[in-house]
Simulated assay, not measured.
Amino acid sequence: MVDRKKSPKKTRNLEESRKEILEAAFWEIFTRSFQGVSVDDIVGKTSLTKGAFYHQFPTKLDLGYALVDEVIKPMTYSRWIDPLKEYENPIEGILAQLKNLIGKAKPSELRYGCPLNNLVQEMAPVDKGFKERLENALNYWIDGMEKELKRAKEGGYLKKDVNTRQAAHFVVMAHEGFYGMLKALDDPKAFDALYDSLKRYFATIRS
């Protein structure tokens, strides 16, 4: 006979274990790369056993896939898309978020780059499962950006002939380019030049 009273607690424990592993894995992989860390490295940053790890993730690749789907994809959206909804003019929100999340970031944070872009560069060329999930995460970001740019267009902030899909691709590419350049140059002042270039782009498509 199943003791149903214990089932919710067991479920919560499994959820908490999964969350703990993913949180530890995110930071280890973000700072050291996916191929640069081992399962032992990740388990060592948790309060769990290796058996608990493999109960959640049969392989390291399964962990990587879950990290993209359950952590990086929603995190990217919450950082770059959700805040735009607070702005009547989404263009202002895009620029404000860039300043807040990149322009005001510490050099010690910028040196690691973007979690999504790091995995795109490292794992998309070598693993099909990663490539599919990373493409999905990028398209999810682009879709959200396009939706906000359409709102800007409907509000009269963009020219009527602007292709919002193309613009969304460009803006997301610019975000990733910011991270890549600042990571490579190790020069926070370079942000101003990149930021001004994006402002000029927006000036060309504003109504």
Score class of each variant (00 low, 15 high):
41 D>R: 07
41 D>A: 09
41 D>K: 06
42 I>R: 03
42 I>T: 08
43 V>A: 10
43 V>N: 10
43 V>I: 10
43 V>C: 09
44 G>W: 03
44 G>N: 11
44 G>L: 07
46 T>I: 07
46 T>Y: 08
47 S>D: 15
48 L>V: 10
50 K>E: 12
50 K>Y: 01
51 G>H: 06
52 A>P: 09
52 A>G: 06
52 A>Q: 14
52 A>C: 05
53 F>Y: 11
54 Y>I: 04
55 H>R: 13
55 H>F: 11
56 Q>K: 13
56 Q>E: 14
57 F>R: 02
58 P>G: 08
58 P>N: 09
59 T>K: 10
61 L>V: 13
61 L>P: 00
62 D>A: 14
63 L>Q: 06
63 L>Y: 08
66 A>V: 09
67 L>T: 09
67 L>W: 02
69 D>F: 12
69 D>W: 11
69 D>C: 10
70 E>R: 13
71 V>G: 00
73 K>M: 14
73 K>H: 13
73 K>N: 14
74 P>G: 07
74 P>W: 08
75 M>P: 00
76 T>Q: 09
78 S>Y: 02
80 W>Y: 12
82 D>E: 15
82 D>Q: 11
83 P>T: 01
84 L>N: 02
84 L>H: 05
84 L>W: 02
85 K>Y: 12
86 E>V: 09
87 Y>R: 00
87 Y>A: 00
88 E>Y: 03
91 I>N: 01
95 L>S: 07
95 L>P: 03
98 L>F: 13
99 K>F: 05
103 G>V: 00
103 G>L: 07
104 K>G: 00
104 K>H: 12
105 A>N: 06
105 A>S: 12
107 P>C: 03
108 S>R: 08
109 E>K: 03
109 E>H: 03
110 L>W: 02
111 R>Y: 08
112 Y>F: 15
113 G>H: 07
114 C>H: 13
114 C>G: 07
114 C>W: 03
114 C>N: 13
116 L>S: 04
118 N>R: 14
118 N>F: 05
118 N>A: 14
119 L>A: 09
120 V>L: 11
120 V>W: 13
120 V>I: 15
120 V>S: 07
121 Q>E: 14
121 Q>H: 12
123 M>T: 02
123 M>Q: 08
123 M>P: 01
124 A>E: 12
125 P>V: 07
126 V>D: 03
126 V>P: 00
129 G>P: 02
129 G>C: 04
129 G>F: 02
132 E>C: 01
133 R>T: 05
133 R>P: 00
133 R>G: 00
134 L>Q: 05
135 E>H: 10
135 E>C: 04
136 N>D: 15
136 N>G: 10
137 A>V: 02
137 A>G: 06
138 L>V: 09
138 L>K: 10
138 L>H: 04
139 N>Y: 12
140 Y>E: 13
140 Y>R: 12
141 W>F: 15
142 I>E: 12
142 I>P: 02
143 D>N: 14
144 G>M: 04
144 G>W: 02
144 G>N: 04
